[in-house]
């Protein structure tokens, strides 16, 4: 009995790779840039304070190199953020929700609706300016690694939340 069952199903699994993934909202790139520049400014101010107040002359001899290194690191982080933005995609199928991201390390996560414990949408201050929300999905157990989709419009987030909630209660 198991044999026939096996033969039937193997060809007909829904394929995750053939699923159409949707890009997250373009506006979220702006949110990311604003967040990045805030952090960047903070570090820059910190570095300037260190330069003027704390560093000894011996260290200050290399100060140009230090600033340069800082700029290169920040620049590459920024470059990575920009380049990997297009890789942030999500998909909702009839029975599960998926999210993928990453340029150097590609991650794909899928959570079946039947295992979801609760859904949460929240708006961070900067996202709110652009009318964006993030959607978090929680399962039982060690839920540190569950799925979060950042940067979708508020209406869409609420719609998905509504959709999942009805699916959970089925």
């Amino acid at each position: 009995m198991t044999d026939t069952f096996q033969n039937n199903t193997i060809t007909s699994f829904p394929d995750i790779t053939k699923t159409e993934f949707k890009n997250i909202n373009k506006l979220y790139l702006k949110v990311m840039l604003i967040n990045f520049s805030l952090v960047f400014m903070l570090f820059l101010i910190g570095l300037i304070v260190l330069h003027q107040q704390v560093f000894t002359p011996e260290i200050n001899a290399f100060i140009i190199a230090i600033y340069l290194l800082f700029l290169i690191v920040s620049g590459s982080i920024l470059g990575y953020l920009l380049a990997s933005f297009a890789k942030r995609k999500y998909a909702i199928r009839e029975k599960d929700i998926s999210y993928q991201e990453g340029l150097l390390v590609k991650r794909l996560t899928t959570v079946p609706f039947s295992r979801i414990q609760h859904v949460e949408t929240d708006e961070k201050p900067i996202s709110r300016i652009f009318g964006l929300s993030s959607l978090s999905v929680y399962t039982a157990g060690d839920s540190s690694d569950d799925l979060v989709i950042k940067g979708i419009t508020k209406e869409e987030a609420l719609q998905i939340k509504e959709f999942i909630t009805t699916k959970i209660n089925e």
Binding site: L104, K106, L108, T109, R115, T139, A140, G141, D145
Partner: peptide
């Protein structure tokens, strides 16, 4: 299973 994740670095790719 609660959720499933696949990870691939560019070297793995």
């Amino acid at each position: 299973v609660q959720n499933i994740k696949m990870k691939q670095t560019i070297f793995q790719k």
